[in-house]
Design a protein around this nucleic acid. Sequence first.
DNA 1: TACTATTACATAGTAAGCTATGCAATGTTA
DNA 2: TAACATTGCATAGCTTACTATGTAATAGTA
Lengths: 142, 142
Amino acid sequence: MNSAGYLVNNLARLLVEVLRKRIAPLGIVPGQFPTLLALWEKDGLTQKELLALVDIEQATLANTLTRMERDGLIVRKEHPADARARTIHLTAQGRSIRDSAYQTAMQINEEVLADLSDKETQAFLDYTRRIIGKIKDVESAS
Amino acid sequence: MNSAGYLVNNLARLLVEVLRKRIAPLGIVPGQFPTLLALWEKDGLTQKELLALVDIEQATLANTLTRMERDGLIVRKEHPADARARTIHLTAQGRSIRDSAYQTAMQINEEVLADLSDKETQAFLDYTRRIIGKIKDVESAS
DNA sequence: TACTATTACATAGTAAGCTATGCAATGTTA
DNA sequence: TAACATTGCATAGCTTACTATGTAATAGTA
């Protein structure tokens, strides 16, 4: 149980669960985080524009948006020029949790990396990015 | 999108999908891997004994075992001494894929780490383990 | 202009994770 | 030994990911 895959999977699950617990008071769940980050930067995007920012599949995003609408975080409105598309807008509630959510995420990041020096943290992130790059290479080649 | 959490989550998903593609010909899926590894080491365990080896929740394991039984990888038999428990046994099919599965997993491990030196790989695994340890600390304290 | 192709999004179905809870069997104790 | 507690496992319900496919609407072209 010491392969990179096993360890990385384990770490990812642990991180998601920590995030879930800490953001629960805000009324959001981990899967909504990337979408919220994007909308906090720029509101009123279409699903397609959002999709370019969030590194998940289109169908996953569509389902996530549906849950976010159900939860009162966003609303979807008719696109003014294209009846296929809809623009996605934060509600007051969706906007209101921005700062707390950012803070919580940064706090977790700090806590879990507390045992690594700055140099080690940078190395860890660098290695992670390089492995991600490698996988995308390998897979696009096959 | 450069937080440790985001990157690790992304990496984990990519790794799972690579594994999924490569082991599909064997008739197994990624979630079955840890259980198979444990059973290849020692067959006939109870669910509780397996649980101690696989780092997932009991309910997740129960569901995974049900799918593995459906897929013809294992059978569950009555426990000789405890009517609540059942022992879990690989089928011939479950045993037969062992070597290919090991090889596939090792192959992926090598490929995705190919851009890191041995030293970097060791450092990456070490950092990953340390972060995992830290999270388990933090969470058990809270 | 009428097909055809493409695009934007939604839906269906599955896997794999979680927590909470149920149920039957086993253990413990007054 | 009867009552209660604990244990082993299953089930329900949820999230979040995936692929495959459907459905309009729009764009492109013969």
